[in-house]
């Protein structure tokens, strides 16, 4: 579901203007990035799961020629071209994307991407992992706490980010705002940087429907140095836009389940069946009478 959705969006966005297949150059400072975790069977297992959910629709099953027919072609992870990427290069390509290759930085957490890499490396016998420094994944050093404030009046969301240890405001943290919808997280507003007081103000749309009480699940992500994002706030705000909880499946309709079939239809169906089979049984009864009458006559 997810991957085919991405497929459609990505194809329609980029498919038209990416043509030439130039080598995909990863900036030098990103090439050397290393996984902060040691690859293990656990990470490989998690990686396999994510791969099968998110990547398989285009890249196929590693080692099998079932890649999607796109231009440029998505490489087989078991292939040499793919494996000769450094860990940092893989990470960069997966987070940033190019053309038909989607950018996964908003979709996947950095650990998840490392898990995928640990999985695809199982198709490279010569691969030996180098583990990187553990905190290299965060753009902001140390743990972060954040507070969110929503004011209904002017539809602004204000966020304040501070260091957890010393309660100092963080300057220049890059945050983005999302709202939860039926099919995933919808990005709202643009990526914004915190000021010297650690404060960021997002514009919140005034027409985004919440649930029947106007509640909306929003989250704030902070960008890491490696390009991925981490969620620092995931909360529910109460807005004024309420959705009328009118569920189409509450009524008896044609498209509903059997127990919610329109009454007239149930009656027509049952009536027709009863009528036809009633007559059939009546005929059988007549036949039995013919039989009986015959045996009486012959006696």
């Amino acid at each position: 579901m997810k991957s085919s959705f991405i497929l459609i969006v990505v194809i329609s966005l980029f498919g038209t203007f990416v043509k030439a297949q130039t080598p995909w150059v990863v900036p030098d400072d990103k090439k050397g990035l290393l996984a902060p975790i040691k690859f293990s069977d656990d990470t490989r297992k998690l990686g396999l799961e994510i791969y099968n959910k998110t990547c398989v629709s285009c890249h196929g099953h590693p080692g099998q020629p079932d890649q999607a027919k796109l231009v440029p072609p998505p490489a087989d992870p078991a292939s040499k071209v793919y494996q000769q990427n450094l860990d940092g290069e893989l990470f960069y390509k997966i987070t940033e994307g190019r053309g038909l290759m989607p950018s996964f930085k908003k979709m996947l957490k950095s650990e998840e991407i490392w898990n995928i890499i640990s999985y695809v490396r199982t198709f490279n016998k010569e691969y030996v992992q180098k583990v990187g420094a553990s905190d290299s994944s965060s753009g902001v050093k140390g743990k972060v706490t954040a507070k969110l404030n929503y004011t209904v009046k002017n539809n602004k969301i204000e966020v304040k980010v501070i260091q957890q240890i010393n309660k100092m405001p963080i300057n220049g943290a890059k945050l983005s705002l999302y709202a939860k919808r039926n099919f995933g997280w919808l990005p709202l507003d643009e990526i914004r940087s915190s000021n010297s007081l650690g404060i960021i103000t997002f514009n919140y749309p005034n027409d985004l429907p919440g649930d029947k009480d106007g509640n909306v699940n929003v989250k704030i992500n902070m960008a890491n140095a490696d390009g991925t994002e981490q969620t620092i706030i995931d909360t529910i705000i109460k807005t004024e836009v309420k959705r009328s909880q009118y569920n189409l499946l509450d009524n008896r309709t044609m498209w509903n389940v059997r127990s919610m079939a329109p009454i007239w239809l149930v009656l027509s169906y049952c009536g027709a069946v009863l009528a036809a089979w009633g007559v059939i049984f009546y005929i059988i009864w007549i036949l039995l009478r013919i039989r009986k009458s015959g045996s009486e006559t012959s006696n």
Binding site: A272, I290, T297
Partner: peptide, 30 residues
């Protein structure tokens, strides 16, 4: 069905056939 061709049997049979011939029209259309 013990058919002897008595009047009663003929009437019953005739009735059964007639009902069937009418019933089959809506069912076949359906």
């Amino acid at each position: 069905l013990n058919w002897v061709g008595s009047k009663e049997q003929k009437d019953l049979l005739h009735k059964a056939i007639r009902i069937l011939l009418i019933l089959v029209i809506p069912v076949a259309l359906a």
